[in-house]
Structures are given as structure tokens and as C-alpha cells.
């Protein structure tokens, strides 16, 4: 087996050889969209959520006697 020579042209298919896979593009932009939503929801200055606030809501100060 002859080896590929050490040139960028040989090591890699041409830029035009393949489109970006559709599934991967969906993943890429899907994560960006999800990130925008999450950022809004969980940033105190934007969505109003805060770690301490969530704790106060969820937990009573004392376990019941």
C-alpha cells in the first residue's frame, strides 16, 4: 500500500467534495437555539431564575418535627 503524501491536498478531500451532513447541521443550529433559550431562562438578570431563589422555593427552612 502506498502512503498518502504529506500534502493538504492529498490528506483531505476537496472542500467541494461533500456537503455538511444534514443531521449534523440540525445538531449544530439546534444546540444554538437551545442555548439561547436556556440562557434566557437561567440568567437572573433575564429570566429571573436564581440558584438561591430556587432553593428557597423548594426547601422549607427546617425538616418537620
Amino acid at each position: 500500500m502506498s502512503e498518502i503524501p504529506d500534502t493538504a491536498e492529498a490528506m483531505e478531500n476537496k472542500e467541494t467534495a461533500h456537503r455538511l451532513p444534514l443531521g449534523w447541521l440540525v445538531l449544530y443550529f439546534g444546540l444554538i437555539a437551545w442555548g439561547a433559550a436556556y440562557l434566557w431562562l437561567y440568567t437572573p438578570a433575564l429570566g429571573g431564575w436564581s440558584q438561591a431563589g430556587a432553593y428557597d422555593q423548594a426547601a422549607p427552612a427546617q425538616p418537620s418535627r
Partner: peptide
């Protein structure tokens, strides 16, 4: 952490 079980 601000979690109920941890504070307990």
C-alpha cells in the same frame, strides 16, 4: 450546594 439534602 443549595440543595435540600446538602443543607440537611
Amino acid at each position: 450546594r443549595p440543595l435540600r439534602s446538602e443543607v440537611l
